[in-house]
Nucleic acid binder design. Structure first.
Lengths: 189, 189, 189, 189
DNA sequence: TCATAATCGAGACGGTACGTCCCGTCTTCCT
DNA sequence: AGGAAGACGGGACGTACCGTCTCGATTATGA
């Protein structure tokens, strides 16, 4: 009746070891054995909690990213989205971020978990933001929010995953301007 | 005229073997040994032409995709882009397409070759298309073409790579409409 | 009189579990963990009493074999030896017997304990038997008892350990006859 | 049609590595990995030829023992047997010999191969020796040769396997004398 | 009567070796 | 002489147990 089952101390050490090793190794040449020895842990301990390297790295990502999002939605939508996109670009461009994307890309199961544990949460935040803006009259209310959000977030993923470039402030600004052009309410004068 | 003596027949057999095997195997569990035996070829022969599995698969992708693009740029931009995006979605969603994206994602070298051998070509086609439309007065000329193209193509990659969904006609239509709203010349009447 | 309070009940359960499991498993694929779970006991409890699997199995053997020997030395030597050898063959050929021999063979420490707890006791019984026979004039007194006993017991171990055959009554009879030929007093007529 | 398939050079290196390592390690703590690295060979290479450690060690034994037996059967039986037993004791008492016995003891499959590749050959030599002696009138012809041979060889195995003693010259002499007493033709004078 | 301790099951833990898979290279043999 | 077939050294995999070590739950006691 004491509640949650214990979260063993070694769990965090393993996740941290994974993150550290990804700083100087690619995901595919990251080995469970190396993580184990780096974390001072037996391989068995790792396999006890994670089915495979992919799930481990995803958990490491989730831990690294946890509670990074705090947004003030009183600002104009555009500003808040700007923050959103900048944080996203920074996260996705980190070593652990890129590794995570790489496994999401190639592994449908992981993609599913990535979606439920991370993506859908960010997405619904963003959706609320957009809807609040609609209600405040900042943006048109006839738009398809999902498509608009893909137009904002898709290019960020695209740049990082395919072009291997980090979207900088300028890029994000231009992107926002261009998207806003299509959704903002023309004349509030 | 029986065909160039270099690029021996076995090269294509190997690429085809790779494509066939990717129909029922994931990229990561595809092995050089299996390809070799499927192609009726020694491993040595494969390593003679490709440094590793990644380059082989990329070449297989390029072969599969070769001369798929024939567009009529007399149609209105929107229609041509629609074709572009639909072909792209189909290609990326094929087994070989997804495998290729997955290695592009995780391997910078491959990403470079993917860029020069495929992406930059498509991108400059698209750019020309957009510029032609500007000249024809179909779209505003003040726009940042790269950002606009990312707004079109990024969401397609995003949907396939991350959401694991194939963008269907409706999605593509909505996407185009939304992008056009931001770039088309409002009312020339 | 119900039994000493020390040597708790679980000790016997463990030994019995080991014996039972050896009925359908080889010694080398018998695991402490399996014994523990079969005996409904924690691994710790086993390690509390036995240094390792070998000592446990040796103890199981000693328990299984305990008080199996009751011989009537009024019969002629040959008859008593016949009983001895038959009992021995039966014991050694049991699952626990063969397992025990196998660890005696490969582990000097165990061999030592096997010697002091089992073999030397049987050996001195046999020696006494032989000496009684000498005194009774049934056999020559000049003989080297150790060698003679080895000629009787050695072949039994040999057959079981190396030839993997159980010496049957015929074999034992022939062996006894042949040994007696070399030690019996020639003409009692 | 060139005959036997090639015996790869590394085969002997592996067997020698095994023999060397057994000089300072027990069979049970001998590992395939260690043999491989000692022999400068991949594990795979070992597993390609031997199903497991036991077969490898048995082959090492057979190689070590190969062509060790050269006997002059013009001497009196007893002398030839003396040589036989001494050589046997030496072989069985070597590290590789004891290891081999230990696996023969615990593994029926190995025992079978040990029998066909080694034991039965020695045994039939010994049998021929005994029969020659019968024909020469040195020993009684009514005897059961198998039992007599067990009386000679059994004790040697017994001493080494169970008593962990090396039968020395004296022991072998006494054993031979005692066995001969039961089989030699009393007095042909 | 209840706290306080001793015992023990359950099983997590660091570790070692297993036997398998595939890599990328090297060798052999056949055509 | 060129290429298939596949042996080779290597290294990571994921599994099985080892022997040690907490951790509670269950008794068992004695204040």
């Amino acid at each position: 009746m004491t509640g949650k089952k214990k979260e063993p101390r070694s769990r965090n050490e393993i996740l941290n070891a994974a993150i550290e090793m990804l700083e100087f190794t690619s995901y595919s040449s990251l080995t469970i054995e190396a993580i184990a020895s780096q974390a001072g842990v037996g391989k068995t301990t790792i396999y006890r909690w994670w089915e495979n390297k992919a799930y481990l790295v995803l958990d490491a990502f989730l831990m690294a990213v946890d509670s990074k999002f705090e947004f003030n939605s009183n600002n104009p939508v555009q500003d808040t989205f700007k923050q959103h996109l900048e944080v996203l670009a920074r996260i996705l461009n980190s070593k652990i971020g890129k590794s995570t994307l790489s496994i999401v890309t190639e592994n449908e199961e992981i993609a599913k978990k990535f979606y439920t544990s991370y993506l859908s949460l960010r997405r619904s935040e963003a959706k609320q933001l957009l809807q609040a803006a609609m209600e405040k009259g900042e943006v048109q209310s006839i738009i398809n929010t999902d498509v608009v959000l893909d137009m904002l977030y898709g290019p960020i993923y695209f740049q990082i995953l395919i072009y291997k470039k980090v979207p900088d402030e300028d890029y994000i600004n231009e992107l926002l301007i261009q998207v806003m052009k299509g959704i903002s309410i023309p004349n509030q004068s």
